[in-house]
């Protein structure tokens, strides 16, 4: 089984408490993690995750929070039976000189064997790091700007041609 590790960091112009709380309230996560479809809470520390995988695949796993320090860190791991085994640690540190909070994320995935593992491997090898960086960027936008910047749904001269084609 292949294992992939992603480490990345972002600084968010809010207090560690605010940033921690927003992450810990898991319901926010699908807003900034593009590949996560839903998270349902199954107890104080347990949750059920559903993700969109490559080629329309749907992946799911149960996760458990294994460390939780208010305003400082959250660590989790997937429980046995996960489509993709994963565990991770997110630390929240005050950034120097009133710069808000440094969010340091460390996530490890273990890909399953077989066709699914191969398909996932292709996606992950193309940039699991970038995927997670994009997620953290959107989390920052949500925390600082209150919304995620987008152009999806705006007009362009390309639409006209498509519409005429219909």
């Amino acid at each position: 089984m292949a294992s992939i590790e992603v480490r990345t960091a972002v600084t968010i112009n809010r207090s560690p408490h605010d940033v921690y709380s927003a992450w810990r309230a898991l319901e926010n996560i699908p807003r900034f993690m593009r590949h996560i479809e839903s998270i349902s809470q199954a107890g104080e520390r347990r949750s059920h995750w559903v993700a969109r995988g490559p080629a329309g695949l749907r992946l799911s796993w149960d996760a458990e929070i294994v460390a939780d320090q208010e305003g400082e860190l959250i660590a989790w791991r997937s429980l046995p039976g996960a489509d993709v085994e994963n565990h991770g640690l997110v630390r929240f540190k005050p950034a120097p000189g009133d710069r808000g909070t440094e969010v340091h994320a460390l996530i490890r995935y273990r890909l399953p064997g077989g066709v699914l593992g191969q398909a996932l491997g292709n996606v992950f090898n193309q940039g699991a790091g970038r995927l997670i960086q994009g997620d953290l960027r959107r989390f920052k936008q949500l925390m600082e700007a209150g919304e995620i910047s987008t152009t999806e749904g705006q007009p362009s001269g390309r639409q006209r041609e498509r519409e005429h084609g219909r």
């Binding site: 987008t150 001269g157 006209r160």
Partner: peptide, 25 residues
């Protein structure tokens, strides 16, 4: 109507859909 970039040295005034609000701000 909008001025669209088509290619280097070519812009065109085209009919395009109206813009809509996409975000709360």
């Amino acid at each position: 109507k909008a001025v669209c970039w088509i290619a280097p040295n070519t812009v065109r005034v085209q009919q395009v859909p109206d813009p809509a609000l996409l975000n709360p701000r």
